[in-house]
Nucleic acid binder design. Sequence first.
DNA 1: GAATCGTTTTAAGGTTGATGTAAGGTTCTC
DNA 2: GAGAACCTTACATCAACCTTAAAACGATTC
Lengths: 238, 238
Amino acid sequence: MEKVKDKKILIVDDEPEIRMMVERFLRKEGFFRVYTAEDCASALSICRRDKPDIAILDVMLPDGDGFTLLSSIREFSDLPVLFLSACGEDADRLLGLGLGADDYMVKPFLPRELVLRLMAILRRVYSSPVTEYLAVFRLGERTTIDLDSAVVRNDQRELPLTAKEHAILAKLYENRGRIVTNDALCQAVWGDDSYGYENTLMVHIRRVREKIEQDPSNPIHLLTVRGLGYKLLVKEKA
Amino acid sequence: MEKVKDKKILIVDDEPEIRMMVERFLRKEGFFRVYTAEDCASALSICRRDKPDIAILDVMLPDGDGFTLLSSIREFSDLPVLFLSACGEDADRLLGLGLGADDYMVKPFLPRELVLRLMAILRRVYSSPVTEYLAVFRLGERTTIDLDSAVVRNDQRELPLTAKEHAILAKLYENRGRIVTNDALCQAVWGDDSYGYENTLMVHIRRVREKIEQDPSNPIHLLTVRGLGYKLLVKEKA
DNA sequence: GAATCGTTTTAAGGTTGATGTAAGGTTCTC
DNA sequence: GAGAACCTTACATCAACCTTAAAACGATTC
């Protein structure tokens, strides 16, 4: 369980004084993973690269405004956002909150209040039992696997996965790049009392390969490691 | 318990005008499970008995203050709390937020902002990604579903949805494209203690299919994924 | 408080495709 | 070249799911 103060915080503000003031205060409060950005472009790239846990956005920025920035972020992420702005007009607050911000503070502000509000958001976001998200990922140029909807897209074809195939792929994906022993796989699929399913596992592995490999008899993604187990090679998240 | 607007809201305020004003506005906004209390004692008993999903607390109350009330609530519950107070002093805000409130608004306030802030909290706490506006969608050329008014339009016909059918479709829509397990669906429809409704669920799924599919026995929108659950395929927002 | 109507649940029989079994084949390792 | 580990295929089975009808429920009206 990660502590709230281990969370990565991104500060986006074009005024250096504000940026540094907030950063210094957050560090003093015990947050040690603080990033900053001074325009939309760099903020976006940081969001994609470093995946902060929460962002503090200014509304007026040199290359755009915070509202547009939030919309762009929302296209690929559910990142918690707190607006910190000199624009305290009713319309601005409503707009910001309506766009899906988690809070909206008006400058000048109490640093202490900022921290408390940040923590209120982080508490909720990271204590809630986040819906067990699985994954969508890519095996090669031609193949993607969507565990959430249990389908494999191979070239143009869309092949559904059965329950066991899904369980096998989920376990392999959980340990992608590493070897998963037959025992571990059996246990993941049939539960604790899974002795005697080795052969059945093989049959299912074959079925999975028929769906995810171009040539199931010469697998390049789901590999056998003789004497040890199986291994799934994943190219990237997609 | 899918939509944010199905959540139970408790309003605690000793001034009847405020209480009724907030309540009326929330109902107008679509929240229909609103409770009120005018002192700490009754607020506490409501919290224990009816377990609201979020509370709006005034700070000054006839038999104590909102801060003490929050502390009492925190002894047995993690209930999200938004303070709504005439006391806008720095110290009050810091105290309220420091005690674990999720937000703190100062009177006078914009009703719309209250709703947006409530929804921001509910979104995080119950991580229900669907916003209020997305509840009308299209399944195919012929079929649209309107969850707001609970009707299905299939060809020219307009079919009303029952409560259970609505709950099922809401849960499936919330996870559109992804598999929803039978357990999750039962829980969404019948609450936490939903063991033993699998068969009933099937019957309801059949009824839903009779409304949204051309040929209910060969569904193309609401699919069964054997061993995993059900999946709703949505063409687009409409 | 009985009658009505729409909704929900129960129950029982039917269907089907994912799963497990088994038998024969292949490849690797020593 | 023998033994072990793994692959491949086809088939039968049974749990998971479907379907239907009737009973139970609950809200509304007279």
